[in-house]
Nucleic acid binder design. Structure first.
Length: 178
DNA sequence: CGCCTTTGACCAGCGC
DNA sequence: GCGCTGGTCAAAGGCG
């Protein structure tokens, strides 16, 4: 891995019913996305740490996939076998694909995605017992945008922190609605 | 030597 | 039923 800019964005996400987030975060060009959280399970309501690289632009995109989506035509067993975890996806404008969020990730796959110019990479948290996954891919329409999708929650502390973390954290805490 | 990435194969879900 | 697609596995190789 290269030396990525290490910027963190921690949000004490009280994901109640205040989904809209539209505010400046890095000054000129920052959060303009909307975070949809209607079906977020309790786990996500506690704390989610959103990593960002170079924070030129970050916008939370929807993608919280509710588990009950699994209910298909009489295939409830699937829900038991492979319950889909809710996902949180967001976009960052970054030159690097790998966003250093302080956790250690191991890449376990890469796939070319249909209608996408860039492959999607699959990462898994290497912390023992932690099965948080994330997918990273560049947006085909704008290769400067990296779409990161998190699945699961870290139940362990961040393994490394950076100075910038607190900086961004403080900025985030200005917006208690989030 | 341990940890990581790469990459092809495999599997399951879904739509037609 | 079949083919496509997304997601995962696992072997092989690279690097510090």
């Amino acid at each position: 891995m290269e030396n990525h800019p290490k910027l963190f964005l921690a949000s004490s996400t009280t994901l109640g019913d205040a989904p809209a987030l539209s505010s400046n975060m890095t000054g000129s060009n920052a959060l303009d996305g909307v975070f949809y959280n209607s079906d977020v399970p309790d786990g996500f309501k506690r704390e989610i740490r959103f990593p960002i690289a170079q924070v030129n632009d970050i916008s939370f995109s929807k993608s919280v996939v509710p588990m009950e989506n699994e209910v298909k035509s009489g295939k409830e067993k699937c829900a038991e076998k492979k319950p889909k975890k809710p996902r949180i996806a967001f976009r960052t404008r970054s030159k690097v694909d790998i966003l250093d969020d302080g956790y250690r990730w191991r890449k376990y796959g890469q796939k070319a995605v249909k209608n996408q110019s860039f492959p999607r990479s699959y990462y898994r948290c290497t912390h023992e017992g932690c099965n948080v996954k994330k997918q990273v891919q560049r947006q085909s329409t704008d290769e400067g945008i990296v779409v990161t999708t998190y699945e699961g929650m870290h139940l362990h502390p961040v393994e490394k922190l950076s100075d910038n973390f607190e900086q961004i954290l403080n900025q985030m805490q200005i917006y208690p609605a989030f």
